[in-house]
Amino acid sequence: MFEELNNIAGWSLKNLPTNKMILISDWNTDASFLLHHFLAFYLKANSKVVLAHAAQSFIHYNLACSRLGVNLERSRNNGDLIALNLLDASLQQYVEGSCENLSLDSEYCLNFLFGDNSLKHLFKVFKRCVENTKDALIILDDVTLFLGLGVSQKDLNYFVHYMDVLCKSNNCTFVTLFHQNFAPDISEPSPYLCCQLYASYEIEVKGLESGYSKDVHGVLTLKSKETKGIKTYQPHKLMHYRLTDRSLQLLAPGTSSAVL
């Protein structure tokens, strides 16, 4: 859990961002560390978390999050965390043509997308997971991966729209990651703009333009559409960041130890 990010965004364990969509986007760098932050953040706040991991294995999340002070394995056994293993589901479907006897919770059938290349089934699974809970968090660890796997941009846009509606109606939060360098076709509304449209917060992560530096790993911009208590326009907050294994350091541009 990254305290500094929470302070800047105005979040805390008692004041979770709910019924919102939070978009994490990156450009030529990997912003997946922020997913771990949200996982740890919501689990510490005793919320229910649904993690759909398509890009990485559960073991990866478990080990990486253990350094942030949460034990995913234990949470999963307690029922606080539902892990949907889309990575293995994809493999099983590819090799055998179905994924019926997947070793996960059998009630959540993961025959979700590869039949008709739409994300409708995945949405239904999410919906069922959060039906009777409040303040739940849904994490989909890489939404652009589906574009690579053959889901059309239109389907992705629909999916994001439906997830936004689900968040508003069920009072839950949806966090997803978008890689901006998967530039889309021009003909349809760009999925990135579509995600931006529905997201209440966008955290954009980019590498430094001048190249890699050991002291500053990149630029993090927090774009908020929140108007709670603030009547005027809220500017983007741009910060430099430095990531360590357990924490995220946020600095005003030009105040890193390398400059001063």
Partner: peptide, 15 residues
């Protein structure tokens, strides 16, 4: 999409 799908499944096998 075939390449991406293959690599995705290869990752699943590898893990």
């Amino acid at each position: 999409h075939n390449i991406v799908r293959f690599l995705h499944c290869l990752r699943a096998v590898a893990r």
